[in-house]
Design a binder for these strands. Structure first.
Lengths: 133, 133
DNA sequence: CTTGACCTTGAAGTTAACTTTAAGGTTATG
DNA sequence: CATAACCTTAAAGTTAACTTCAAGGTCAAG
């Protein structure tokens, strides 16, 4: 089977070498085998593991959460745990969408009210922000 | 007219004293008058200025952007500038909502597919994250 | 046999928006 | 007049997720 130096793994995965070593320190990547000269040698499936990390990050998981998911996989743990982590993530995302939507509504309405002409004094944007609630 | 020590201003505004001094260093708050013993004395309108900062933060503006807005107000600058800053903010918020909505859709669908029972091996959540795109 | 492209480690820097710590001076209260 | 509750400054710490730097060892090409 094929093995990679860290630079080759970096090219395959799109994750910088330093970030790979960082993930190792953070226990997201296992310690790989070493050559005689102490170079890291990675098995092929290291690429998939890094891509899992990348995708989970895109979904908004933190490295802490990703570590949890990876540890569950490594231990072939309980699927209920994974579902709990993902459900919490979904909740977070829904909250974010809600609060952003509220802001979007007020901000876009305010922008419509502002002609964009004239001095700051009396500007609807500023007044909307200054507004108490 | 009433004036406040920094602690009183902190109580009025809900912003920690240290944060107020931080805003002063960052040019969000003007340097206030000082007493003989070098204590800061704030005029009443400092409360409104801090509340403007708080609200703008809730709207997702960064301190850099808030500083811009405040400087425009202080200089009674051009309303068009304020509108530009707010429009950019609206764009950012809309982008965030869009990408979060995409994640929400995939994540909630994936969660429905996962019974939450059984071992990690074959868990739909993990497989969805591992998926290439 | 030297040059350049790799690899190693550990430590420090980055960003945002503060908070905490350290080491003191001032003021109000009993 | 002592003590607690304020205030002052500058500097360092916090969090996340890396990146950059420093100082060096290794390896392939010419």
């Amino acid at each position: 089977m094929k093995t990679f130096n860290i630079g080759e793994l970096s090219n395959q995965s799109g994750v910088a070498s330093h970030a790979i070593r960082f993930y190792e320190r953070e226990n997201l990547m296992p310690e790989p085998a070493r050559t005689q000269s102490n170079y890291r040698r990675y098995p092929e499936d290291a690429v998939a593991r890094l891509q899992f990390i990348i995708h989970a990050k895109q979904w908004g998981f933190t490295l802490d959460e990703i570590r949890e998911l990876l540890m569950l996989q490594d231990a072939n743990g309980d699927r209920a745990e994974a579902k709990r982590i993902a459900s919490e993530q979904l909740e977070k995302i829904r909250h974010q969408i809600q609060s952003l939507s509220r802001i979007e509504a007020v901000l876009s309405k305010t922008l419509e009210e502002c002609s964009g002409e004239g001095p700051m004094d009396g500007c609807p944007i500023v007044e909307a922000i200054a507004q108490e609630r």
